[in-house]
Design a binder for these strands. Structure first.
Ligand SMILES: [Mn+2]
Ligand SMILES: [Mn+2]
Ligand SMILES: [Zn+2]
Ligand SMILES: [Zn+2]
Lengths: 141, 141
DNA sequence: TCCTTAATGAGAGTCATTCTCCTTTAGTGA
DNA sequence: TCACTAAAGGAGAATGACTCTCATTAAGGA
């Protein structure tokens, strides 16, 4: 807990960002809300301990965190943005029945993709990353 | 041209959907605008020949077409929805510099993925499809 | 401790999408 | 061919996620 916040402070400083209570609690919220929260999920979570934070501030901080690669945006086919506190490359399982997005990590898949894309020529294109979208339905849903 | 519209009429009828001029021109627009158009791109395209179509109608028709699997939504990390007239499974290259989304089709990749996911156990999950998001920057951008 | 400048708060503004409700029309069957 | 009916479309208001503006506050460096 103390350690989490210390860790967040360090991440912000390392990027040359001012360490503000708002930025700390937003990152804390993203790390605590496991499943790819929306701005609204984050605001709701934060308001408990930090009732006066402005929604505009939350959106601004989220943008800053994305720009500095402390968080990522998650691609969806809805018109509400979702965020991911895990910045290491990983894949996503999208539920067709609800808006659940689960992480999927597997070294074997990463190796497979790496080998495939190393072999392929992408003329005039600088490859940055590969994310696999796995879509389907969970029995529980 | 005539053939395209005849083809669209058939697709609609096959799904048990009423064949209306609005639905025809929206599908026509999606097929003509190659790169994963937004609702707004579609409206702009259609207004030339069909100036009175209501925006609400366009959104409603798009929903209907998605539900009936005549088109698909494309996942993005923006808050504007984009659509795809190609319903056969394929992958997407996202440009980091602009909002270009190119199709990527390669049989070898599909075989690779198919073999990998056949082998993996997904307990309590019914797999529907796999789409690879390739992100990077085009030199031209 | 003070200063500078970036960050935040409050609230108005924007705009993509949805909703409501009335009118029109596609498709069916006499 | 015609009339009927349910489904679809038009107009425009409503919604809500996100952005903007600008005055105030506070983080971090001197
Ligand atoms: Mn994730
Ligand atoms: Mn496509
Ligand atoms: Zn689900
Ligand atoms: Zn580009």
């Amino acid at each position: 807990m103390k350690r989490l916040i210390e860790n967040i402070r360090n991440k912000l400083s390392e990027k040359g960002l001012k360490v503000t209570p708002q930025r700390i609690s937003i990152l804390e919220a993203i790390y605590s809300l496991n499943n790819h929260p929306t701005a609204d999920n984050i605001i709701e979570f934060i308001r408990v301990s930090h009732p006066n934070i402005a929604t505009g501030t939350v959106y601004k901080v989220l943008d800053t965190l994305v720009e500095n690669k402390l968080i990522k945006k998650v691609k969806t086919d809805r018109d509400i943005l979702r965020y991911d506190g895990i910045v290491d490359n990983h894949h996503h399982i999208y539920c067709s029945e609800c808006d659940l997005i689960e992480d999927y990590k597997d070294e074997e898949l990463d190796v497979l993709l790496k080998e495939y894309f190393n072999k392929k020529q992408f003329e005039g294109f600088k490859l940055e990353d590969i994310v696999v979208q796995i879509r389907g339905t969970f029995d529980k849903c």
